[in-house]
């Protein structure tokens, strides 16, 4: 464990807490893409298949349970909670995410560390996570005005993977046997997808204005 990875995990945790806060405090999920939340639930379930077979540390197990539990709770809330579900922007959240699922799975069948069920699903979850934010970014562009909590949620979600890139650089320099090309390349793609969001987020923060994404 290094400071970059810890910062990354904490930032990721903050993004989940911000989203839970938004949904429970405002009883609304406006501006949040259910498709991105469902993709993230799939990411965590397929990535943590080793939850009960490989014990790394208490921290690792607890965080896995938190991410799986919170992502499923958010999907459940947005689908079935009688108050929250009414504020879901159904007609704006129309990204055809089957494409993302299909491409990620085919890529995982071709590019993986070992051809075992667990490793193929792990690679699938890495590729899927890189593109899982797309429905959310499209929804934010379509809905124009971005409420603070939704903007902060996406910001922290993007920042966490940026910390992980620093973690991979650090591990590459300090651990001679560290090669995680699948994670590194995917993580770079993932963070790059946020680049324009970060730019507009920074502009809005600098001008102390509402976050406006160009349609």
């Amino acid at each position: 464990m290094n400071i970059f990875r810890l910062a990354g995990d904490m930032t990721h945790l903050i993004s989940v807490l911000v989203l839970l806060l938004k949904i429970y405090a405002t009883k609304s999920c406006s501006g949040i893409s259910l498709k991105t939340q469902e993709l993230y639930a799939i990411v965590f379930v397929t990535r943590y298949l080793d939850l009960f077979t490989d014990f790394i540390s208490l921290y690792n197990t607890v965080m896995k349970l938190v991410f799986i539990g919170s992502s499923l709770a958010i999907v459940w809330c947005m689908r079935y909670h009688r108050v929250v579900r009414r504020s879901y922007d159904r007609e704006l959240d129309t990204f055809r995410y089957w494409i993302l699922l299909g491409v990620s799975f085919i890529l995982a069948l071709v590019l993986h560390e070992k051809f075992t069920l667990q490793e193929v699903f792990w690679a699938f979850s890495i590729y899927l996570e890189a593109v899982a934010i797309l429905p959310q970014l499209v929804l934010l562009q379509r809905s124009g005005n971005v409420d603070n909590l939704a903007g902060q949620y996406v910001f922290f979600l993007g920042a966490y993977r940026a910390f992980y890139i620093l973690n991979w650089i650090y591990r590459y320099l300090t651990e001679q046997r560290f090669t995680r090309w699948i994670s590194c390349v995917s993580g770079l793609v993932q963070t790059a997808l946020y680049a324009d969001f970060f730019y507009y987020y920074f502009i809005s923060w600098k001008n102390n204005a509402k976050l406006q994404l160009p349609a």
């Binding site: 990875r5 995990d9 990721h12 990535r47 080793d50 490989d54 790394i56 690792n60 965080m63 896995k64 991410f67 560390e113 070992k114 792990w122 992980y164 973690n167 046997r177 995680r180 994670s183």
Partner: peptide
């Protein structure tokens, strides 16, 4: 040696 390709990252 212990199998080192266990994914220790979240």
């Amino acid at each position: 040696i212990e199998e080192c390709n266990v994914h220790d990252e979240l």
